[in-house]
Amino acid sequence: MKRPGPLLTLLAGLVLGLSLLTLDATTGTRTASSPYEEGSPGPAAVRSAAPAAPTRSVSPVSPSPSRVRAADADYAGRTDDGTASVAVSVDDGRAIAYYCDGRAEESWLKGDVEDDGTLRLTGGDGARLDGTLTDGARVDGTVTVDGGRHAFTADRARKPSGLWRATATVRSARIDGGWIVLKDGTQVGIVTRDGEPSPAPRIDPATGAVTVDGERLTARPATP
């Protein structure tokens, strides 16, 4: 039997080559990814989103507690050494005070009342009162008059206790009277005649009536 000739071998190889070329054209393999392949995001989509700014929780700010102005009231008491009396009258954030030993030494003082109840009152000849109003019940502090410094406590007063004053002109003399009425009814006061002090006569606590040098006057509650 004759072997196939060279021509047949060549034809078989050609057929095999054509078959391989046809298969490759049909199932051709991609060698590189296209930037626009199906299912791939476009340029705008592939941008990385900027991270969102962190949210800061802000705690609600509690309003500052409002300060309460000292209540209008009168306070009267004695110095700790028992040598004099002190009265304080508070009205609309202002205060007036009177220091009196009932004989010859006295001083009127005035100033503001701070929202925390602190008092810094001043009077003539360097007189000074430093005190604290506590819960609207009393005033504790010190008063300095003529170089002498006295601690005192003045409790809240109820009429007729408190601070009284009368001013007038009697027989051409300028009269200025001050009275401190304590809760036990005791009165401590001085009347000055043209600047000369002397113990004051008693007033009627119900009406404030008082007689000075034969002249009938009316003392009234002292206010700032």
Rank of each mutant, 00 (worst) to 15 (best):
R3C: 05
P4W: 02
G13D: 04
L14W: 06
V15W: 07
L16F: 03
G17L: 11
L18D: 09
L20Y: 03
L21M: 13
T31I: 09
A32E: 11
S33R: 14
S34G: 11
S34A: 11
Y36N: 15
P41G: 11
P41E: 12
P43A: 15
A45Q: 15
V46D: 14
S48K: 14
S48C: 15
P51N: 12
P54N: 09
S57Y: 14
S62I: 02
S64N: 09
P65H: 02
V68G: 01
R69A: 11
A70K: 02
Y75T: 00
A76Q: 10
D80K: 15
D80T: 14
G82S: 07
T83L: 06
T83Q: 10
A95P: 02
A95K: 01
Y98A: 10
C100I: 03
D101L: 05
G102D: 06
V113K: 06
E114M: 10
D115G: 15
D116R: 10
T118C: 01
D130L: 00
D130W: 00
T132N: 14
D135I: 00
G136T: 12
A137N: 07
D140E: 11
D140S: 11
T142W: 04
V145S: 00
V145L: 00
D146L: 04
G147T: 00
H150Y: 04
R158F: 08
P160A: 07
L163Y: 04
W164D: 04
T167P: 08
T169L: 02
R171A: 13
R174Q: 13
W179A: 15
I180D: 05
V181R: 13
L182D: 03
L182C: 02
L182F: 02
G185A: 06
G185L: 03
G189D: 14
I190K: 08
T192F: 05
R193I: 09
S198E: 12
P199N: 09
P199Y: 05
R202W: 07
I203G: 07
T207D: 00
E215D: 11
L217G: 00
P221R: 12
T223W: 10
